[in-house]
Nucleic acid binder design. Structure first.
Lengths: 187, 187
DNA sequence: GTCTTTTCGGAACGATTGTTCCGCATCGTT
DNA sequence: AACGATGCGGAACAATCGTTCCGAAAAGAC
């Protein structure tokens, strides 16, 4: 016998919280920031999510969900080079205004086990996406030489993470230069 | 007619503060943390440095000074490949316990102009170090093809920054894989 | 030894932190 | 229509934040 329903949309609240965390980091975000951004009252936030950290974890999960849209490009059809260029283009656009929440979390919250697990899951998923693409590319003869595909996947993830940091200070041209060189292993 | 000298060593205090900031970030570090780490009283810290942020900026400068020791490897003599491998080895060792203060600052404090300027200076210095090495390597015929050395320098800086993020979750083997692939442009 | 200037520990500042709690408003249920 | 449970705004919580201030201790200058 429930009597009243929430007047706000939980998903919207998470979305707003995620943006704040992404922009200001965990420690840099205050509860007041979250109240302002979501439009909810403190009590509603605590009742719904439990704590600031819980809301942060939920925000990480939301971010991870949306990151799937980005990596989905890598599962497309066509030449590997085209797919990778499209992927990195989208990555750069995504990170030019403000950087990646996951990378942010890597540096700020790496010693919190719940956060660390999510980071590792994110990295592993990216690595798998690259690996899948590379095996296909290899069998199509799109790769120079006979590279270690697992190592190459790790290299591409590293390039990704570098770009989210580099994007803070560099201009678009520099980022494109970086991508072009990183993809030299392609025929 | 000065009457009394400081009983502490300012350089030591900066060193300790730098370690704290590196480990916990700017927002994550409290004044109490700095008091504990340096052994100074609050008043001494404020009298000597001005504010928490001022002490942070001084810590960044100290970090940058020490970073010179790392890049100095790139100015050595011998095959470019050896120098770069030695450089990345030292970079990895440096970043395995805890990540780079500059990269941390890039993500956490990028919108503070005084911080941003220092970050850009750090990136520019690294880029110059690579560029210098690459020009020498090019004239020695150590490079495959005829690459754009400026772009290649940017790529190496990006690889550096990626490694400081990747080092949080990856093991040593993965990092070595990444370096090996990143240096494929060498003959 | 006295004077004078600076250092520095620690108390205190107001502001803000994350969190809790209360009471009225709201709405599904009977 | 009355009940009863839930939602939620806002006041209040203790703790901690960065910062200031004051008084006693210290030490070079005379």
């Amino acid at each position: 016998m429930m009597s009243r329903n929430k007047t706000f949309n939980i998903d919207d609240a998470i979305e707003q919280a995620m943006h704040v965390f992404r922009g200001k980091g965990y420690e840099g975000t205050s509860m007041q920031d979250l109240v302002d951004a979501t439009g909810l009252s403190r009590s509603s936030i605590y009742e719904t999510f439990g704590s600031k950290k819980d809301l942060y974890l939920v925000s990480l999960d939301r971010y991870e969900d949306q990151a799937h849209d980005l990596t989905s490009v890598l599962y497309g059809t066509g030449p590997a080079k085209e797919l990778l260029l499209a992927f990195f283009d989208r990555l750069i656009v995504h990170n030019m205004p403000q950087s990646c929440l996951m990378v942010n979390a890597s540096l700020e919250m790496c010693d919190h086990p719940e956060v660390n697990g999510r980071i590792k899951a994110n990295v592993a998923r990216n690595e798998r996406a690259f690996y899948q693409l590379l095996t296909r590319a290899a069998s199509n003869g799109e790769l120079k030489g006979n590279p270690d595909l697992r190592a190459l996947s790790q290299f591409l993830v590293n390039t990704m993470q570098g770009i989210t940091v580099t994007a803070v200070t560099a201009d678009r041209q520099a980022l494109d230069n970086i991508v072009a060189i990183a993809l030299h292993f392609l025929r």
